[in-house]
Nucleic acid binder design. Sequence first.
DNA 1: ATGAGTGCAAAGTATTTGCACGTAC
DNA 2: GTACGTGCAAATACTTTGCACTCAT
Lengths: 151, 151
Amino acid sequence: MSVDLSDIKREFTKFLKRKNMKVTQSRLNLIDLIAKYGKHFEVEELVNWIATQGDRSVSRSTIYRTIKLLQEFGVIKEVIKQNNRTIYEFVAGKAHHDHLVCMECGKIIEFVNEDIEKLQDEVCKEYDFQPTHHRLEIFGVCSECRNSDLT
Amino acid sequence: MSVDLSDIKREFTKFLKRKNMKVTQSRLNLIDLIAKYGKHFEVEELVNWIATQGDRSVSRSTIYRTIKLLQEFGVIKEVIKQNNRTIYEFVAGKAHHDHLVCMECGKIIEFVNEDIEKLQDEVCKEYDFQPTHHRLEIFGVCSECRNSDLT
DNA sequence: ATGAGTGCAAAGTATTTGCACGTAC
DNA sequence: GTACGTGCAAATACTTTGCACTCAT
């Protein structure tokens, strides 16, 4: 793990105080739990997994509420919106990246392309649009699935 | 309107026949209705608007079912996924484009950038990934909203 | 004539919310 | 001590589905 969770929790504490919100165990625990989960997740999946983690458990409502805060804080992003599913990622300490999504096996491939980012900035300038965030999803079929499809 | 609806309906008819599905009034009507609606839409919004269109009415279930077919056929796309909303667009006859979404006024700006498309193809080649479609959403604040925000 | 399509209402998901109780400050 | 946060269960919003009837073929 490239990022120090203590740092994140310390910054999140400041973030909460700035907003005059309370620094609760649930809120801090959820950071640990999501980091421990360690992969892309859907909320329901996370809720169920957290239920298996003994103590430090956090309820569904609080998970939903805290995920919103963590998105605002910036350590979590909705990276894939497919059908009616939302897949989140813990992005703390990671460079911005986008995703290839295999529609057969569900695999998610992350990629970084600075040129695409630059071109987006140009588009925004052209329309005098101030971007806050973006999401690029490329859906298709990964090479493994194509190769195993030779049935 | 740059595209001939009759052509689209003729092609959709072929599409349905190829799939051994029936060419029903509801299915053809929905194409007319969506074209007449003429802008980006959410399903619920479309359902309510269609209910005001007198005859040619189509039920919510059939709208949902037919939208899936029209997506497969390619004349409709889910272009924006924001929070838990899905915004569709009737794309028949339009060049592929992506979107800037103003989070203050909800305005949707379409843009075309061939270079971004090319770079995406390169990324896919690099990962030996066969893309079927993609979606690039840039969220932010449009210039009008920034100017009126001088409060 | 027959089976796929439609409309309705009910069921299923995902997410949000009201409220009583607990906890940070 | 007070107000915000939490957990629960209920409510909401969106979408899908079972079924009886209708219509395209």
